[in-house]
Nucleic acid binder design. Structure first.
Lengths: 343, 343
DNA sequence: GTGAAAGCGCTAACAT
DNA sequence: ATGTTAGCGCTTTCAC
């Protein structure tokens, strides 16, 4: 047994070329499906065999340096442990992977500084584009990309400033459907547990809520929350219930997490859902059907939104689309056990 | 307004060097904290200022090509939408990011071919190491890495063949605690809804279950499942209940998803949990406390497992650790509403 | 159809 | 303390 470097015995193009008795360029051409036609069939076949025998693995990094394409997409989300994001990420992946791209996912925790740092890191890694699901991204950062020609697509949120392509669910229709459902059940005094107002979803959902209530002559109060979290939802309802001043018979939450927080608060205050108070979520995130009670919510097609966002981004990168397309995917109201007739 | 390329106006080291009237190497040294000391303080300050003014962004890809380090770690998991994985990924990230590394996460869906493809893609991207949470990875693939000197750490699963470092939860202790709890409640006939036998967790948990039952003189039947999924759990219990031959009074599930499947099956068969049948999960994944009934389960510290796996991997990469360390993190039984005294 | 040469942006010897 | 040189592994003109 001879001495052998324990370290990675990387086989390079040059190694294959030497073994095949040809130039590295010829190997490169043979191995790339797009340029394979430039090489004599016989030669290409031989080279491929040798490459395989030698265990050649292309070095994507070196190729990227030369071609100025990393085949990597940055995905910026607030928090992977929020169950709506894994389906989005998987949707993105499902479109990217078969096309040779990979995704690099970062979590910002809704923190603007962290977001700035992470996006810079993605840029240094030469990502070919960005799919952004955070609303906090403000003008300065995004406009930089715009100027630099970096492709950006928003998903689940819209960009506040520059008109990037965006994929969203039809939140307006969702809220309208909720209100209609509650009205049919006889509710006339409804509380909206709104998501953060600096997110496009929070804003749109609460605006639609208010206008629907006005249109239908309902009492519709809006409580703003800092975050789309269980804790925020619980704290908000706690605050009202602790003052003993409940007038509403239904709660429309900005998302399922806030709705779950409402569940908790109602329970600790001895109120029953849906008997005393109806609660509606938004997103139909995983496991909402298994909650107690099963949650009535609006289904948003997160996986498909991811797919669509990836599609939009790649078509931008390939220079096919240029217009800042807005794609809105349909939602549907999922009736379960957390809503009932008003007392 | 002059013509200007719409494309990315990348500022390179050479650009900064020219503007500063120095050599590119000096700029490189100034900007790298590790080599900054080699440069005159005054010069370094000036260069940094110019770099900033010019909007210089380092190119990690080019650096990686030169240094043979990508500062990227591949993370191989079965499925991001399984709620135990996001905490693991975030744990990994939390350790990696402050140290300049990024993670690239891929989903194998438990499919060996997909796994092979994705891992190859990660290797082509020159990842510095791999954190693997899939059990299906068999000898051939892993041994390749071993030979190539690629660092691998297992998390949540152990490697079947080669002794890579691994971070797991103390599943044996978890199962023991469950059995003890059930025995205290008077259960003597217990069913184990086991996870896939080709995963180290599935195997260990079911082995411990069997030996505990034997030791305590309990009737302990084991049903194997293909996947750690709700559907599999439901189907398995359905199969038994459809035959009307229930003898067990408690179900110990291989994980929370299987337990949730058991919930569903019991419900459709008109059985109440925990009144008729007690159910115990494993993992304490998010939202188990909100299920109906709140699920008694074993808490596994997934976030910490991610942190620990990343720590192990980087210390391997840095050549600090060499021994294939096995880290086992403690678990704890979380008593909630899905277990009750046996009838 | 194939080879030779240049160079993507960076860092690490080796000079000075 | 700084400059020079070389080269990481690849693709892409440009020759022939």
């Amino acid at each position: 047994m001879a001495y052998r470097s324990a370290m990675r015995n990387r086989v390079t193009l040059a190694d294959v070329a030497k073994a095949a008795g040809v130039n590295a360029a010829t190997v490169s051409r043979s191995l790339n499906p797009a340029t394979e036609g430039q090489v004599r069939k016989e030669t290409a076949r031989k080279i491929k065999k040798i490459a395989k025998d030698l265990g050649y693995t292309p070095n994507t990094v070196a190729r990227g340096l030369r071609t100025r394409k990393s085949l990597t997409i940055g995905v910026v989300i607030p928090d992977l442990t929020n169950p709506i994001f894994p389906p989005i990420v998987r949707g993105i992946d499902s479109y990217l992977l078969p096309r040779g791209y990979s995704a690099m996912v970062v979590n910002t925790d809704g923190n603007k500084e962290i977001e700035q740092t992470l996006i810079s890191s993605l840029m240094e890694r030469q990502v070919d584009g960005l799919i952004v699901a955070t609303g906090h991204t403000e003008g300065d950062l995004l406009s930089q990309f715009h100027e630099r020609g970096v492709k950006v697509v928003m998903v689940n949120r819209e960009s506040p400033g520059i008109p990037f392509p965006a994929v969203t669910s039809d939140d307006g229709a969702g809220i309208s459907a909720i209100i209609e459902h509650l009205v049919e059940l006889g509710h006339t005094n409804i509380l909206h547990l709104a998501g953060p107002s600096d997110s496009s979803t929070g804003l749109l959902r609460s605006k639609t809520f208010s206008s629907e209530c006005k249109k239908r002559g309902l009492v519709g109060k809006v409580i703003k929350n800092e975050n789309y979290s269980i804790d925020d939802g619980q704290a908000a309802i706690d605050k009202i219930l602790d003052h003993g001043a409940r007038t509403f018979t239904a709660i429309v939450a900005g998302n399922d997490l806030l709705a779950l927080g409402a569940y908790h608060s109602l329970r600790t205050h001895g109120l029953r859902c849906p008997d005393d108070v109806s609660v509606v979520g938004f997103n139909n995130m995983p496991f909402t059907a298994d909650f107690q009670p099963p949650m009535t919510t609006v289904n948003a097609p997160h996986y498909d939104m991811g797919v669509e966002a990836a599609r939009l981004l790649l078509s931008q990168i390939d220079g096919i689309d240029s217009a800042p397309v807005k794609v809105t995917l349909p939602v549907s109201l999922i009736l379960r056990g957390s809503t009932a007739r008003a007392l």
